[in-house]
Design a protein around this nucleic acid. Structure first.
Length: 557
RNA sequence: GCGCCCAUAGCUCAGAUGGAUAGAGCAGCAGCCUUCUAAGCUGCGGGCCGCAGGUUCGAAUCCUGCUGGGCGCGCCA
């Protein structure tokens, strides 16, 4: 039960009585300004045209027809035709009691209806440790997955990787070159021009030499360089993946499925994709390569409609082909929705994949792509430069070491995905009042402290008289808690988790204000009981909100 | 040149799908701890919502055209 729900039914029947089309929405808004009541609606203004009457007159008629409602203090017309609603305190008590009924599930919703969703994120190839910029994809993807789960979807978290391609060969070659260096035979295999220059390559090489020095020496001496490269590649992959998983673990990220691109070849899906496209006349050969005829697709999502190569003249497929096969595979696994989390630098691949999916007779609208813009790290007012290949890389581990996992997760999701993100390292490192993460965690810890100190524990709500909660801060706090579920729903629908981060700031703020103005322990026994209940429900909401963001909710700080 | 994204306070950003006088945090200034965690609360200053048109009762929000920035536009992924 929310404040909106108290009014929804009566208003609906009034509108019906006025002969208004049943589709007419009666949205309630929370007035931005003080003094406009607890809720307001613009229905009257929306109906002005249909009813050919001035909005104010319609508003007055609606109010008259609504009559007096049990939990409503007053209804008034304001401005151009707003209907402002002020509730009696008992409305808030009703709402609070129903929120308490949710128990630890406060904020949970069932709008997802159990529909299965696959969220694919991170998906970095095992060619090196995750760099700091990857953090946004990681945090965003996992938070979106959490949000969908809380909204009642059945979520699978998936990581797509390729351990077969050209990049992996370069990794193997780079490590092999470092191995040769370590063995004092750098002339055998010079470091490749476009190899991976990172420190970790040297680490892996040294580790290998330490463990299998003799065997590697033998490979080098017998000129079995290909074998050396292959062994190095395998070792590099294992090392990188371990590293990546360790980093994700620290960030509280755990995938259900690690999908290897290579398996698409083994299962024949890539071949099948070509065959299916060919069957539909969407494939042709030119210059020794195989082309996907996007220009022939009538309703292609693709905007530029340029034909694209799917198999190079060397016989190797381009990334496009397995990507299409992969998305088809996921859809055939039966998911009702696929969510892809991509950085803006991969934006160009999306229309091709969607067109491919569509061409093969699947519903491309099931695929929702979240594109996040790039991240800039700012320190002391200046942009921090880093590059994966330069050797002076700034890894996600480095970032976590500097600012902590909670801050990393929060900072990466606190902005809307579509905008460029400035990650302020100074602010992030601040372990105090300036840091927005601590603001939320502090509110949670503060509540826990009080609950610990309450000698009789948290009272059973059923036996508590909530009607003593009449302070403005108390009612405001209740109103904000009651928005939690719809906030989760909105974040799930839009796939924009920053909505939850914003909400939690409001929630924590309302609690801090309540805490400041309303003494809990030691006030009148009845009031103390009621306030303990309110504090405890706030705690649950904060806790769950932080869980969705993957941020810890400490019981003391 | 073409496509996608962005432009709101000194800085970093919200803005509930078109509503009322534009909202936070940080930075600046001024207050509040003999009582539940001051990692908190309260107040003040700060705006041509990039520019110009259009749509309508009403636009930061929708449409068009500019300007300025980011990311792409490969038989790389």
């Amino acid at each position: 039960m929310t404040l909106q729900e108290i009014l929804a039914a009566p208003l609906r029947s009034v509108l019906d009585g006025m002969g208004v089309s049943p589709e007419t929405q009666a949205p309630f808004e929370i007035p931005r300004q003080q003094g406009f009541g607890h809720l307001s609606t613009t229905v009257a203004m929306g109906l002005a045209r249909e009813l050919r009457k001035p909005p104010k007159a319609i508003a007055e008629e609606i109010i008259e027809r609504l009559g007096s409602l049990p939990m409503v203090e007053k209804l008034e017309v304001a401005g151009a035709g707003f209907i402002n609603v002020t509730f009696k305190p008992e409305a808030f008590h009703t709402v609070l009691r129903s929120l308490d009924g949710m128990g630890d599930d406060i904020g949970r919703s069932s709008i997802g209806g159990g529909q299965s969703v696959n969220v694919e994120y991170v998906s970095a190839n095992p060619t090196g440790p995750l760099h700091a910029g990857h953090g946004r994809n990681c945090a965003l993807g996992d938070t979106i997955a959490n949000t969908l789960a809380w909204a009642g979807y059945d979520v699978t978290r998936e990581y797509y990787f390729n351990n077969a391609g050209n990049q992996m060969n370069k990794l193997g070659e780079s490590i092999a070159a470092r191995v040769c260096e370590a063995l004092g035979k750098s002339d055998v295999l010079p470091f490749p021009e476009d190899g991976y220059h990172g420190e970790y390559i040297v680490d892996v090489a040294n580790e290998l030499v330490g463990q299998h020095g003799d065997q590697l020496t033998q490979l080098v001496d017998s000129d079995a360089i290909d074998d050396l490269k292959a062994q190095c590649r395998k070792a590099g992959e294992t090392w990188c993946f371990e590293q990546i998983k360790k980093t994700l673990h620290v960030l509280n990220i755990h995938h259900d499925v690690f999908f290897n691109e290579d398996s698409l070849y083994g299962s024949g899906r890539v071949e099948k994709t070509i065959a299916n496209l060919r069957e539909r006349g969407l494939v042709y050969e030119k210059d020794g390569a195989l082309w996907f005829a996007l220009s022939k697709m009538p309703n292609a999502t693709n905007v530029d409609r340029q034909d694209k190569v799917i198999v190079k003249s060397t016989g190797e497929p381009t990334y496009r082909l397995p990507d299409i096969a992969y998305h088809v595979e996921k859809l055939e696994r039966g998911y009702g929705m696929l969510v892809d989390i991509f950085g803006a630098d991969h934006i160009a691949t999306i229309p091709d994949v969607l067109s491919g999916v569509e061409a093969l007779g699947h519903d491309a609208s099931k695929v929702r792509v979240v594109i996040h813009q790039m991240v800039t790290f700012i320190e002391d007012g200046a942009v921090v430069k880093f590059s994966k290949r330069s050797g002076k890389s700034f890894t996600l581990d480095d970032l976590i070491d500097e600012v902590g996992a909670d801050v990393v997760r929060f900072f990466f999701v606190m902005r809307t995905p579509g905008t460029h993100l400035d990650f302020d390292l100074n602010l992030a490192k601040e372990e105090g009042d300036k840091n927005p993460v601590f603001y939320l965690q502090y509110a949670h810890a503060r509540i826990c402290s009080i609950l610990r100190k309450a000698t009789a524990g948290v009272p059973d709500t059923a036996s508590v008289d909530l009607s003593v909660l009449t302070h403005e801060r108390e009612l405001e706090l209740i109103a904000i808690i009651s928005r939690f579920r719809s906030t989760v729903e909105r974040a799930a629908e839009t796939l924009e988790p920053h909505i939850i981060a914003e909400y939690l700031r409001d929630l924590a703020g309302a609690y801090h204000q309540f805490y400041h103005d309303c003494r809990i322990l030691g006030s009148e026994p009845v009031l103390e009981q009621a306030r303990l209940v309110l504090a405890n429900i706030t705690r649950r909401a904060l806790h769950n909100g932080l869980m969705i963001l993957g941020v810890k909710a400490p019981e003391s700080m």
